[in-house]
Protein backbone atom coordinates (compact mmCIF):
# COMPACT_ATOMS: atom_id res chain seq x y z
CA UNK A 1 0.00 0.00 0.00
CA UNK A 2 1.19 3.45 -0.87
CA UNK A 3 0.94 6.02 1.86
CA UNK A 4 -0.24 9.45 0.91
CA UNK A 5 2.95 11.04 2.18
CA UNK A 6 5.45 9.67 -0.34
CA UNK A 7 2.98 9.82 -3.21
CA UNK A 8 3.08 13.34 -4.49
CA UNK A 9 6.66 13.91 -5.47
CA UNK A 10 7.24 15.02 -9.03
CA UNK A 11 10.35 15.67 -11.05
CA UNK A 12 11.44 19.14 -12.23
CA UNK A 13 8.85 20.21 -14.82
CA UNK A 14 6.68 17.20 -13.96
CA UNK A 15 7.98 14.71 -16.55
CA UNK A 16 10.62 12.17 -15.58
CA UNK A 17 14.01 12.60 -17.24
CA UNK A 18 13.62 9.52 -19.42
CA UNK A 19 10.43 10.87 -20.89
CA UNK A 20 12.02 14.27 -21.44
CA UNK A 21 14.88 12.65 -23.33
CA UNK A 22 12.41 10.77 -25.51
CA UNK A 23 10.55 13.99 -26.28
CA UNK A 24 13.78 15.89 -26.94
CA UNK A 25 14.80 13.23 -29.44
CA UNK A 26 11.46 13.69 -31.19
CA UNK A 27 11.98 17.47 -31.17
CA UNK A 28 15.45 17.14 -32.68
CA UNK A 29 14.11 14.90 -35.40
CA UNK A 30 11.31 17.38 -36.06
CA UNK A 31 13.80 20.21 -36.40
CA UNK A 32 15.87 18.13 -38.78
CA UNK A 33 12.86 17.51 -41.04
CA UNK A 34 10.90 20.79 -41.00
CA UNK A 35 7.14 20.30 -41.14
CA UNK A 36 7.28 16.51 -40.76
CA UNK A 37 5.10 15.07 -38.01
CA UNK A 38 7.23 12.96 -35.70
CA UNK A 39 5.27 10.37 -33.71
CA UNK A 40 6.13 10.35 -30.02
CA UNK A 41 4.88 8.40 -27.04
CA UNK A 42 2.75 11.15 -25.59
CA UNK A 43 2.16 10.86 -21.85
CA UNK A 44 -0.95 11.40 -19.86
CA UNK A 45 -0.65 14.84 -18.37
CA UNK A 46 -2.43 16.25 -15.35
CA UNK A 47 -4.59 18.34 -17.66
CA UNK A 48 -7.02 16.87 -20.19
CA UNK A 49 -6.11 15.88 -23.71
CA UNK A 50 -7.11 18.70 -26.02
CA UNK A 51 -6.20 21.30 -23.40
CA UNK A 52 -2.61 21.74 -24.42
CA UNK A 53 -1.00 18.49 -23.31
CA UNK A 54 1.20 18.40 -26.42
CA UNK A 55 2.44 21.93 -25.86
CA UNK A 56 2.91 21.28 -22.15
CA UNK A 57 5.02 18.18 -22.83
CA UNK A 58 7.21 20.07 -25.30
CA UNK A 59 7.58 22.99 -22.92
CA UNK A 60 8.33 20.66 -19.99
CA UNK A 61 11.05 18.96 -22.02
CA UNK A 62 12.86 22.11 -23.12
CA UNK A 63 12.42 24.20 -20.00
CA UNK A 64 15.49 24.80 -17.86
CA UNK A 65 15.69 26.57 -14.48
CA UNK A 66 16.98 29.77 -16.17
CA UNK A 67 14.13 30.11 -18.62
CA UNK A 68 11.44 32.72 -18.53
CA UNK A 69 8.05 31.42 -19.56
CA UNK A 70 5.09 33.20 -21.11
CA UNK A 71 1.80 31.41 -21.75
CA UNK A 72 -0.97 32.77 -23.93
CA UNK A 73 -4.33 31.47 -25.04
CA UNK A 74 -6.19 33.36 -27.78
CA UNK A 75 -3.41 35.94 -27.55
CA UNK A 76 -4.08 36.76 -23.93
CA UNK A 77 -2.03 35.97 -20.83
CA UNK A 78 -5.03 36.04 -18.54
CA UNK A 79 -7.43 33.58 -20.14
CA UNK A 80 -8.22 30.73 -17.76
CA UNK A 81 -6.31 28.00 -19.56
CA UNK A 82 -3.21 30.19 -19.95
CA UNK A 83 -3.37 31.02 -16.25
CA UNK A 84 -3.71 27.35 -15.41
CA UNK A 85 -0.75 26.23 -17.54
CA UNK A 86 1.44 29.07 -16.28
CA UNK A 87 0.57 28.15 -12.68
CA UNK A 88 1.38 24.53 -13.46
CA UNK A 89 4.93 25.35 -14.53
CA UNK A 90 5.43 27.73 -11.64
CA UNK A 91 4.46 24.90 -9.35
CA UNK A 92 6.38 22.01 -10.92
CA UNK A 93 9.42 23.89 -12.32
CA UNK A 94 9.46 27.10 -10.33
CA UNK A 95 10.58 29.04 -13.41
CA UNK A 96 10.30 32.76 -13.88
CA UNK A 97 7.13 33.73 -15.70
CA UNK A 98 6.28 36.86 -17.60
CA UNK A 99 3.58 38.36 -19.75
CA UNK A 100 6.11 40.37 -21.77
CA UNK A 101 6.78 38.82 -25.16
CA UNK A 102 10.26 40.35 -25.32
CA UNK A 103 11.33 38.98 -21.94
CA UNK A 104 10.25 35.39 -22.51
CA UNK A 105 12.64 32.68 -23.65
CA UNK A 106 9.85 30.14 -24.09
CA UNK A 107 6.32 31.10 -25.12
CA UNK A 108 3.60 28.51 -25.10
CA UNK A 109 0.61 29.50 -27.17
CA UNK A 110 -2.81 28.38 -28.17
CA UNK A 111 -4.31 29.92 -31.32
CA UNK A 112 -2.12 33.02 -31.74
CA UNK A 113 1.37 34.28 -32.53
CA UNK A 114 2.37 37.40 -30.58
CA UNK A 115 2.28 40.65 -32.54
CA UNK A 116 5.79 41.65 -31.48
CA UNK A 117 8.25 39.92 -33.83
CA UNK A 118 10.07 37.09 -32.10
CA UNK A 119 13.84 37.11 -31.97
CA UNK A 120 16.70 34.68 -32.13
CA UNK A 121 16.92 32.40 -29.13
CA UNK A 122 13.20 32.46 -28.39
CA UNK A 123 11.09 29.32 -28.72
CA UNK A 124 7.41 29.44 -29.57
CA UNK A 125 5.55 26.27 -28.52
CA UNK A 126 2.17 25.73 -30.14
CA UNK A 127 -0.63 23.58 -28.75
CA UNK A 128 -2.05 21.54 -31.58
CA UNK A 129 -5.41 19.76 -31.55
CA UNK A 130 -5.27 17.99 -34.96
CA UNK A 131 -1.78 17.99 -36.48
CA UNK A 132 -2.76 16.39 -39.78
CA UNK A 133 -3.65 19.02 -42.40
CA UNK A 134 -5.18 16.32 -44.60
CA UNK A 135 -7.26 14.78 -41.83
CA UNK A 136 -10.61 16.25 -42.80
CA UNK A 137 -10.07 15.25 -46.41
CA UNK A 138 -8.80 11.77 -45.61
CA UNK A 139 -9.58 10.32 -42.16
CA UNK A 140 -7.11 7.41 -42.37
CA UNK A 141 -3.68 7.77 -40.82
CA UNK A 142 -2.27 4.99 -43.00
CA UNK A 143 -3.39 6.88 -46.12
CA UNK A 144 -2.32 10.39 -45.05
CA UNK A 145 1.10 9.10 -44.06
CA UNK A 146 1.51 7.78 -47.57
CA UNK A 147 0.34 11.06 -49.07
CA UNK A 148 3.02 12.95 -47.11
CA UNK A 149 5.69 10.42 -47.97
CA UNK A 150 4.92 10.63 -51.67
CA UNK A 151 4.22 14.37 -51.57
CA UNK A 152 0.72 13.82 -52.94
CA UNK A 153 -0.90 17.07 -52.00
CA UNK A 154 -3.41 17.47 -54.84
CA UNK A 155 -6.28 16.93 -52.45
CA UNK A 156 -5.31 20.00 -50.44
CA UNK A 157 -5.82 22.18 -53.47
CA UNK A 158 -9.09 20.43 -54.25
CA UNK A 159 -10.36 21.85 -50.99
CA UNK A 160 -9.19 25.36 -51.85
CA UNK A 161 -10.69 24.96 -55.34
CA UNK A 162 -14.03 24.05 -53.78
CA UNK A 163 -13.87 27.11 -51.54
CA UNK A 164 -13.42 29.41 -54.50
CA UNK A 165 -16.03 27.63 -56.62
CA UNK A 166 -18.57 27.93 -53.84
CA UNK A 167 -17.73 31.24 -52.21
CA UNK A 168 -15.71 33.20 -54.70
CA UNK A 169 -12.67 33.11 -52.43
CA UNK A 170 -10.77 30.77 -50.17
CA UNK A 171 -12.97 30.39 -47.10
CA UNK A 172 -10.39 28.94 -44.73
CA UNK A 173 -9.81 31.53 -42.05
CA UNK A 174 -7.79 29.68 -39.43
CA UNK A 175 -5.59 26.57 -39.36
CA UNK A 176 -4.73 27.63 -42.88
CA UNK A 177 -2.39 25.01 -44.39
CA UNK A 178 1.20 25.94 -45.23
CA UNK A 179 4.07 24.31 -47.04
CA UNK A 180 7.27 24.21 -44.99
CA UNK A 181 10.71 24.30 -46.59
CA UNK A 182 9.22 23.43 -49.99
CA UNK A 183 8.40 19.92 -48.85
CA UNK A 184 5.82 19.14 -46.17
CA UNK A 185 2.30 20.51 -46.02
CA UNK A 186 1.68 21.41 -42.39
CA UNK A 187 -1.17 22.49 -40.16
CA UNK A 188 -0.09 25.64 -38.31
CA UNK A 189 -2.58 24.81 -35.50
CA UNK A 190 -5.75 26.89 -35.31
CA UNK A 191 -4.08 30.29 -35.47
CA UNK A 192 -5.95 32.82 -37.63
CA UNK A 193 -4.47 33.00 -41.10
CA UNK A 194 -3.61 36.57 -40.14
CA UNK A 195 -0.68 35.06 -38.23
CA UNK A 196 0.58 32.80 -41.03
CA UNK A 197 3.08 35.32 -42.45
CA UNK A 198 4.71 35.59 -39.01
CA UNK A 199 5.87 31.97 -39.31
CA UNK A 200 7.76 32.66 -42.51
CA UNK A 201 11.51 32.97 -41.88
CA UNK A 202 10.87 33.67 -38.21
CA UNK A 203 14.02 34.14 -36.16
CA UNK A 204 12.54 32.02 -33.38
CA UNK A 205 12.34 28.25 -33.22
CA UNK A 206 8.75 27.12 -33.59
CA UNK A 207 7.73 23.80 -32.02
CA UNK A 208 4.33 22.16 -32.33
CA UNK A 209 3.04 19.57 -29.87
CA UNK A 210 -0.09 17.46 -30.29
CA UNK A 211 -0.55 15.34 -27.16
CA UNK A 212 -3.70 13.41 -27.94
CA UNK A 213 -2.59 12.70 -31.50
CA UNK A 214 1.00 12.00 -30.34
CA UNK A 215 2.86 14.14 -32.86
CA UNK A 216 5.60 16.76 -32.64
CA UNK A 217 6.69 18.94 -35.54
CA UNK A 218 8.85 21.99 -35.96
CA UNK A 219 9.83 24.98 -38.03
CA UNK A 220 13.51 25.81 -37.47
CA UNK A 221 14.49 29.51 -37.51
CA UNK A 222 14.63 31.21 -40.91
CA UNK A 223 12.63 28.47 -42.66
CA UNK A 224 10.43 29.22 -45.63
CA UNK A 225 6.73 28.88 -44.77
CA UNK A 226 4.31 29.45 -47.63
CA UNK A 227 0.53 29.51 -47.31
CA UNK A 228 -1.11 27.42 -50.02
CA UNK A 229 -3.02 29.31 -52.69
CA UNK A 230 -3.68 29.68 -56.40
CA UNK A 231 -1.77 32.05 -58.68
CA UNK A 232 -4.97 33.91 -59.50
CA UNK A 233 -6.34 33.69 -55.94
CA UNK A 234 -3.32 34.55 -53.84
CA UNK A 235 -3.28 34.07 -50.07
CA UNK A 236 -4.59 37.09 -48.20
CA UNK A 237 -4.81 37.88 -44.51
CA UNK A 238 -7.75 39.36 -42.66
CA UNK A 239 -7.97 43.14 -42.62
CA UNK A 240 -9.73 45.09 -39.93
CA UNK A 241 -11.57 48.29 -40.74
CA UNK A 242 -10.76 50.05 -37.50
CA UNK A 243 -7.71 50.14 -35.26
CA UNK A 244 -7.79 48.75 -31.71
CA UNK A 245 -10.31 50.76 -29.68
CA UNK A 246 -8.03 50.82 -26.64
CA UNK A 247 -4.54 51.42 -28.02
CA UNK A 248 -5.18 52.49 -31.60
CA UNK A 249 -2.94 49.79 -33.08
CA UNK A 250 -3.37 48.99 -36.76
CA UNK A 251 -2.40 45.82 -38.61
CA UNK A 252 -2.93 43.68 -35.54
CA UNK A 253 -5.48 40.95 -34.90
CA UNK A 254 -8.56 42.21 -33.09
CA UNK A 255 -11.16 40.55 -30.87
CA UNK A 256 -14.73 41.66 -31.00
CA UNK A 257 -16.21 42.61 -27.64
CA UNK A 258 -19.98 42.91 -27.35
CA UNK A 259 -20.82 45.97 -25.26
CA UNK A 260 -24.59 45.79 -24.91
CA UNK A 261 -27.62 44.04 -26.33
CA UNK A 262 -28.25 46.75 -28.91
CA UNK A 263 -25.50 45.76 -31.32
CA UNK A 264 -22.85 47.89 -29.61
CA UNK A 265 -19.41 46.37 -29.99
CA UNK A 266 -15.79 47.33 -29.99
CA UNK A 267 -12.65 45.79 -31.45
CA UNK A 268 -9.58 45.43 -29.27
CA UNK A 269 -6.16 43.80 -29.59
CA UNK A 270 -6.24 40.06 -29.17
CA UNK A 271 -2.62 40.25 -27.96
CA UNK A 272 -3.16 41.74 -24.51
CA UNK A 273 0.53 42.25 -23.80
CA UNK A 274 1.02 44.18 -27.02
CA UNK A 275 -2.00 46.37 -26.23
CA UNK A 276 -0.78 47.11 -22.72
CA UNK A 277 2.67 47.99 -24.01
CA UNK A 278 1.24 50.45 -26.46
CA UNK A 279 -1.02 52.05 -23.91
CA UNK A 280 1.89 52.39 -21.50
CA UNK A 281 3.77 54.09 -24.29
CA UNK A 282 0.99 56.64 -24.54
CA UNK A 283 -1.08 55.34 -27.45
CA UNK A 284 -4.78 55.83 -26.96
CA UNK A 285 -7.59 54.36 -29.05
CA UNK A 286 -11.08 55.62 -29.68
CA UNK A 287 -12.54 54.20 -26.47
CA UNK A 288 -9.35 54.01 -24.46
CA UNK A 289 -8.27 56.04 -21.51
CA UNK A 290 -4.81 57.54 -21.44
CA UNK A 291 -2.67 55.61 -18.94
CA UNK A 292 -1.35 58.69 -17.15
CA UNK A 293 -4.85 59.98 -16.52
CA UNK A 294 -6.04 56.64 -15.30
CA UNK A 295 -3.21 56.50 -12.82
CA UNK A 296 -4.16 59.77 -11.25
Amino acid sequence: MTSAGNLATYNFAYLDEQTKRMIRRAILKAIAIPGYQVPFASREMPMPYGWGTGGVQVTASILGPDDTLKVIDQGADDTTNAVSIRAFFQKVANVKVTTKTGEATVIQTRHRIPEEPLTEGQVLVYQVPIPEPLRFLEPRETETRKMHALEEYGLMHVKLYEDIARNGHIATTYAYPVKVGERYVMDPSPIPKFDNPKMHRSQALQLFGAGREKRIYAIPPHTEVVSLDFEDYPFEIQKFEKPCALCGAENVYLDEVVLDDKGGRMFVCSDTDHCEDRRNAGHVGELGVAQTEAAE
Binding site: E152, Y153, G154, L155, H157, V158, Y161, E162, I164, A165, R166, D229, F230, E231, D232, Y233
Partner: peptide, 22 residues
Protein backbone atom coordinates in the same frame (compact mmCIF):
# COMPACT_ATOMS: atom_id res chain seq x y z
CA UNK B 1 -16.63 17.36 -54.28
CA UNK B 2 -17.90 19.38 -57.26
CA UNK B 3 -17.67 18.05 -60.81
CA UNK B 4 -15.12 20.74 -61.65
CA UNK B 5 -12.85 19.77 -58.79
CA UNK B 6 -13.26 16.08 -59.63
CA UNK B 7 -11.87 16.76 -63.08
CA UNK B 8 -9.34 19.30 -61.84
CA UNK B 9 -7.85 17.13 -59.08
CA UNK B 10 -5.33 15.40 -61.32
CA UNK B 11 -4.17 18.74 -62.68
CA UNK B 12 -3.67 20.10 -59.17
CA UNK B 13 -1.88 16.90 -58.19
CA UNK B 14 0.72 17.50 -60.88
CA UNK B 15 1.23 21.08 -59.84
CA UNK B 16 -1.24 23.28 -61.71
CA UNK B 17 -1.83 26.31 -59.52
CA UNK B 18 -4.01 28.60 -61.60
CA UNK B 19 -7.62 28.37 -60.54
CA UNK B 20 -8.98 29.99 -63.71
CA UNK B 21 -7.07 27.68 -66.02
CA UNK B 22 -7.92 24.56 -64.03
Amino acid sequence: VSAGANVGERLMAIGDRHYGQI
